Amino acid sequence: MLRFPGFGSRTPHDVTIGPLDLAARVDEALAVQAEAFGLSQDEIGVRRQIVLRHMGYPGARALGATLTDGRLVGFVYGMPNDRLHWWSTVVQPYLRRAGHDHWLDDSFVITELHVHTRYQNQGVGRSLITTVTDAVTQPRSILSAIDVESPARALYRALGYQDLARRVHFPSAPKPYAVMGADLPLHRREEPGPPVR
């Protein structure tokens, strides 16, 4: 497990990155996501069912960022991509038009990555995503993020993710997304990644 020293006056606790039984702690995780991402109670209910279904897929894995008192302040989960999964069926036409359809094969999808706002910009999200992808057998990773310049997109770029498709529209999502991909292992310091193949 990775440990982060206390964040000075912000909190006296350490943050530990380690395995997370996401099905057992789904409500805690969704509370972090709701705080970080701004979700309504109806959206939380829908996402709860999605998370529980995803955690039953072969190869799904989750990590949590917890304080010494056990409180969850961040989490990541993902799974090997399957072209039959809903996410893949939505992004496939966009990737095909951009010439990146092959990224849907032999890739590990980062499905969710969220850190409580009090612990953002501390390296927690970076450690969650690099640790979860270090443990997979796929040679690359893909994810989707809201298609705006944001701290999340900057982090993904620093890790080696590059845009594969932009202006991707998910049903019922009010904003377009970008699909991003990176060869594994992810970068450990801020440096530009190689060109997307």
Rank of each mutant, 00 (worst) to 15 (best):
I50K: 14
G123V: 10
Y57F: 15
L159F: 04
R71Y: 05
S127L: 06
L113K: 00
G160K: 04
Y57K: 15
L95R: 03
A31G: 06
L20C: 01
S9P: 15
H85G: 15
I44H: 01
A178S: 08
L113S: 04
Y161Q: 03
R3K: 15
Q92P: 08
I146C: 09
R166C: 14
R96I: 11
R118I: 12
A98G: 00
V26L: 11
L2G: 07
D183T: 15
V73P: 02
P139C: 07
I50Y: 14
P139D: 05
R153V: 14
P192H: 15
I142T: 03
V46M: 11
P176G: 02
R53M: 10
G99V: 00
G38E: 00
L20K: 01
A135F: 11
D21M: 07
Q162P: 08
E149Q: 14
V32N: 02
V132M: 07
R97Q: 10
L143A: 07
N121I: 15
R3S: 14
A65L: 04
N81M: 12
Q41V: 11
E43R: 13
V132R: 05
F37Y: 13
Q41T: 13
A65S: 02
P195W: 06
G64T: 03
L72R: 05
R140C: 00
L104I: 04
E149K: 14
M55L: 11
D101T: 11
Q138V: 05
L184S: 03
L67A: 06
G125C: 06
Q120T: 10
P80S: 02
R126P: 08
G74M: 01
L67G: 07
Q33D: 15
P93T: 08
A34N: 06
Q138E: 13
G70N: 05
A31F: 04
Y119N: 04
A23Y: 13
L184E: 04
W103S: 04
V91K: 03
S150L: 09
D183G: 12
L159K: 02
D82Y: 09
V124P: 00
R189V: 12
P80V: 03
P171M: 09
P19S: 09
M55G: 07
G59Q: 08
A31W: 00
A154G: 11
R97T: 12
